[in-house]
């Protein structure tokens, strides 16, 4: 995975203390606070490195492994859920 990622277009977004729910035309998904933060940051295209730096600043470094790798895994999951897309796919 390389390049930049940005939000997929959603119908609505509900943010509460325990996380958030995104509503799309054909599905919805619930995000953890970390996933919700990535989604919010990706309003503008973001690289994995830029997201990793932002996540470290807000949530701290992961207990195991590198921040960049953990971010890559999180972004891949969000892409699979239809929450994020490659910036040049939009």
């Amino acid at each position: 995975m390389s390049g930049e990622y940005q939000q997929c277009e959603s119908v609505d977004h509900l943010v509460l203390a325990g996380g958030s729910i995104l509503l799309f035309d054909d599905h919805f998904t619930r995000l953890s606070p970390l996933g919700a933060y990535i989604f919010m940051r990706a309003e503008e295209p973001q690289t994995i490195d830029s997201l990793a730096a932002a996540l470290t600043a807000v949530f701290g470094a992961p207990t195991h492994g590198s921040t960049v790798e953990a971010t890559r895994v999180a972004v891949a999951s969000l892409v699979e859920q239809g929450v994020l897309q490659k910036a040049d796919d939009g």
Binding site: V11, D12, I21, L23, F28
Partner: peptide, 20 residues
Amino acid sequence: AVQQMLPETSSLGKLPRPLA
């Protein structure tokens, strides 16, 4: 509650502020 009710809504996205 929102997560559990969402699958049982019809045309929710047509409301002005559906999730709210």
